[in-house]
Design a protein around this nucleic acid. Structure first.
Length: 731
DNA sequence: CCGATTTGTATTTTT
DNA sequence: TACAAATCGG
């Protein structure tokens, strides 16, 4: 097969590059994924490289899966042996094999942010530090940076011995690590750090992987941090066939330790690096690309490059000023409706914002308008209470020394084991230096426990012991169901029987189907693998494409994606760029890169909006258009007022559309049967007036309706049989 | 010990 | 604003 037809010269060069280090500087939309997949396919097919000798590291699991599919498509063969995944998932895979060599158990837990915070709270308390000065969140931030930079607690303490605060942070760091180890747990950063530690501790292990990975690929190289770079440097040290792809203009994770100097170091660490620049953009129109180029050129710290495209000129970029965030949302909704008439599908649209909080207004308006949408991010599926509870049960069963998980669920559902009891147990466990679960096995040794408490605990221990026993005997799905049954988790929720508990049950059902899905895709996978996969999943990973919905997401999570029509909203000073960045040149440059990423997501049409008044966290203030808008030459932009013939008052445009929408709501009472109610039906409620049905769920014999009423009533949930509503005839 | 209420506080991005 | 932690009363 021909792997280079249809590629430009630069791309071909990258695909056919023989051996040795390769640095691809790939501008936005320059077809880097294409280059990567074609190169991998070429290596396997033409150069007869065994797939198991290839390692490809991507930024998200979703990107990894896509890459796998595309390579498989090119080859039409089995590529299951290729290691593809994020830094974190690759490290888990390595650690599951050999972490016992650095003193952990292979059944280790992975701690997420909440777990980390809980653990840090304990540390601060134990060190007798003032919790108003030592905030767990910021301490954890410090520690994370230290880990990224590969600085150990001891080093940090010694370096800062005369600085009281920093020394204490160092002490907390040390204690935090000690506790993680006691719990046989790793946090996200540890996954990288401990892999490095393993390689250092056991050269045989390192040697194995160095020999195995003859070809290594790293995507989104600009967003790797120091420790991640060190990891790939080590792995590639033997064969030096390291291919990294990155774009310094799209580096947007500096706050998380991403280190642009990695691109510079690369040439130093790998002499004779071949550098290939991909500068032809295949994604956007000339106008959109032009706007992007004009914005990003205001950054001083960047490699000079010039993206160009053969694509059509396209429409001018629309910059629209709106009175407030509500009107902004209406503007976007109106525009979407208009464009759908012209043939665009809902899935063609993306609404990009700087902060997750901005999604709410859009959500409300889209519901009212009946525009299907999905939100990426916000409260994540795996962050929901019920999901975290189940996960805590599973983690405990898998790793019984995981005190953090145990404490999360020992009284969930309520078993009468409260703070007082737990205090006594923890104190005793500390004294004897054992895990909580272990001391719970010998209750009579723990002083001062009431008989009642003892009985409750006995019940709990019995359930968990029993679950541990049967863990191996069934599928993951069956086991999760068994856990839910034995712990009475489902029963308690069913007893509660309200809207909240029903949503939770639904989420649990979805979680079970996630497990089923996992088992189908990983027939060999066990509970540990499942837990690791779930803990390392990001939001973007979870969103399926091709659903016929518009997408709302932050600019950060939009990285790597593209959409025919992009609405870049909330472009105001203080919001984008965010106000914390206003007085700091390097942070401003990161905001500008973020803006560049946002603009370059658009293929055909780009709308940029800003509101004159915005309410953030309860206070309303006037806001100025973002400086990034000023950086765009005026001849490249327009307004809807200019570009359409709808008169010279653009406020009128919005209002007119608004009023037409509302006129439909005129109450026309009808005797129609309530059974005709469906999503989108307008109804008149005795007390709340006109609303639109946005969701219908079956509930026993009845139906539960979610109805969106006009402000200030908002969303309400009602039972069809008893709700005092009438259907309103449209038009 | 539990649940409800009040109080307070933090508001960027996330593997 | 909105959510979580702290506090209070049963």
């Amino acid at each position: 097969m021909d792997y280079i037809s249809g590629l430009n010269d630069r791309q071909k060069e990258a695909v056919l590059h023989p051996e040795g280090p390769l640095l691809i500087l790939a501008g936005a939309g320059s077809g880097k994924t294409r280059v990567l997949t074609h190169r991998i396919a070429y290596l396997i097919e033409e150069r007869k490289i065994f797939p198991g000798n290839i390692l490809a590291i991507t930024f998200t699991n979703k990107a990894a899966n896509e890459m796998k599919e595309r390579v498989a498509e090119l080859l039409g063969g089995d590529i299951g042996y290729i290691w593809m995944g994020t830094f974190h998932s690759i490290c888990v895979r390595i650690l599951r094999q050999d972490i016992d060599k650095i003193g952990y158990d292979r059944s280790f837990s992975i701690y997420d942010r909440d777990d980390q915070i809980t653990l840090m709270k304990e540390c601060i308390k134990e060190q007798n530090l003032n919790k108003d000065i030592y905030k767990e969140r910021s301490i954890l931030g410090n520690i994370s940076s230290l880990k990224d930079a590969m600085i150990s607690p001891d080093t940090y303490i010694n370096q800062n011995y005369n600085d009281y605060y920093r020394r204490n942070v160092g002490e907390l760091y040390a204690l935090y690590q000690k506790k993680l180890k006691q719990n046989n747990a790793l946090d996200f950063d540890d996954l990288i750090i401990k892999t490095l530690e393993l390689f250092r501790a056991d050269p045989m292990v390192l040697d194995y992987y160095q020999k195995k990975f003859k070809y290594i690929f790293v995507d989104e190289f600009q967003d790797t941090n120091k420790s991640q770079y060190e990891l790939i440097r080590l792995l590639a040290d033997k064969h030096k066939n390291l291919c990294v792809v990155g774009d310094d203009d799209q580096s947007i994770y500096k706050f998380r330790g991403a280190d642009i100097t990695n691109i510079l170091n690369f040439e130093k660490d790998f002499p004779n690096t071949k550098i290939i620049k991909l500068e032809q953009n295949y994604r956007s129109t000339k106008n959109i690309l032009n706007v992007a180029n004009h914005v990003i050129k205001n950054n001083s710290e960047r490699k000079d490059k010039s993206l160009w495209t053969d694509n059509e000129e396209g429409n001018l970029v629309v910059v629209e000023t709106l009175p407030d965030s509500q009107e902004e949302a209406y503007f976007v909704a109106n525009m979407i409706e208009k464009l759908m008439v012209e043939g665009y599908k809902p899935s063609d649209f993306a609404i990009l914002y700087r902060t997750n909080a901005q999604s709410r207004t859009f959500e409300e308006v889209f519901i009212k308008r009946g525009i299907p949408y999905k939100i990426v991010g916000g409260l994540r599926f795996y962050d929901r209470k019920e999901i975290k509870d189940i996960l805590a049960y599973l983690k405990l069963i898998q790793n019984p020394v995981d005190d953090i998980s145990l404490k999360r669920i020992i009284n969930v559902p309520k078993r009468g084991i409260g703070n007082a009891t737990m205090g006594k147990i923890e104190q005793y466990a500390n004294e004897v230096g054992e895990s909580i679960y272990s001391v719970l096995q010998k209750l009579d040794d723990i002083p001062d426990l009431s008989t009642r408490a003892k009985n409750s605990i006995k019940g709990f221990v019995e359930i968990v012991n029993n679950l541990m026993r049967i863990k191996e005997q069934m599928s993951i799905k069956d086991f999760i169901e068994e856990v839910l049954k034995e712990t009475n988790y489902i029963k308690e929720l069913e007893k509660q029987d309200d809207i909240e508990s029903r949503t939770r049950l639904e989420n649990i059902r979805e979680f079970i189907s996630v497990a089923v899905d996992f088992e189908v895709k990983n027939p060999e996978g066990n509970l540990e693998d499942f837990l690791a996969t779930v803990s390392l999943l990001s939001d973007v990973d979870k969103t399926e494409d091709l659903k016929n919905t518009a997408t709302m997401l932050t600019v950060h999570s939009a990285k790597g994606l593209e959409f025919p029509v992009v609405f870049l909203v909330g472009m105001e000073e203080g919001l984008f760029p965010i106000f914390r960045a206003l007085d700091n040149e390097s942070e401003l440059e990161e905001e500008r890169r973020l803006c560049y990423v946002a603009i370059t997501r658009a293929q055909k049409l780009l709308f940029i909006t800003h509101a004159k008044i915005r309410t953030i966290y309860g206070n309303t203030s006037y806001s100025l258009p973002s400086r990034f808008i000023d950086e765009i030459p005026k001849n490249l932009i327009t307004t809807t007022e200019e570009s359409s013939n709808l008169g010279n008052n653009k406020r009128r445009l919005v209002n007119i559309v608004d009023r037409t929408k509302r006129r439909k709501n005129n109450t026309v009472k009808s005797q129609e049967n309530k059974d005709k109610v469906q999503v989108g039906t307008k109804v008149n409620h005795k007390k709340w007036g006109i609303g639109t049905v946005v969701q219908i769920k079956n509930k026993d014999e009845d139906k539960e309706l979610v109805i969106a009423f006009n402000e200030p009533i908002g969303l309400k949930r009602l039972l069809l049989s008893i709700a005092p509503i009438e259907i309103v005839k449209g038009d």
